[in-house]
Amino acid sequence: MIKVKREKIKIVLPGEVVKVGDIKTTTEVIKLDDKLVSTLIGIPKMKRRRGERVLSVLPLKTPYIPKEGDIVIGKIVDIGVTNWLVDINSPWKAILPISEVLSKPVNVSKIELKDYLNIGDLIVARVIAFDLTRDPLLTIKESRLGKATRGLFLELSSWDWLLLKSKEKTLLRGVKKKANCNIVLGANYRVLMIGKGLEEELKALEIVRETLGRRST
């Protein structure tokens, strides 16, 4: 998607007819009679899905909508009796129940939840359930998930994040090799760089910047 030449870039705006005809579309495109209308600011793109042509618009800015299976980077914002509330950069706060943190059943009256995760802690988690009627549910009971004890945290715009994601493999390899760091691309447009110390992490940040290809900053 990033191989488009600048002169050829076409941005569509809300209400703009992207195409006319009977083509399958993703959710950011709505059908009005035979017109396919974009609902967001973005770059139109034709995809192939199971042999069928699907019209989509790559949004330049959009709120994060949780999806089952997404790896997200969250921040603990509140502690309940049997759960934590987590800010995952989406319109809804996520819930992290005790059972998805500890492997054994525990007596809530005997433990302090804040001894495990306190307000302000960053976690890498997976969305296990979300369907718009209830708040998203998280788990950290998998390998590579859990509390981030150190690291450098970035919050990107959805477009910046898409750019990074499209180069994920090169980025992961580059950061590992040149900066000796691990990097987590959370689906919620957040990035976490974890290394031995700040120096390595700053090096990783430099690589991220290069990947984004920003001329300034």
Binding site: I9, I11, W159, G213, R214, R215
Partner: peptide
Amino acid sequence: LRSKYLDALKTYRVI
């Protein structure tokens, strides 16, 4: 709208 978002895209070297 278009000019704001085209300007934003121009700050990337990759496109």
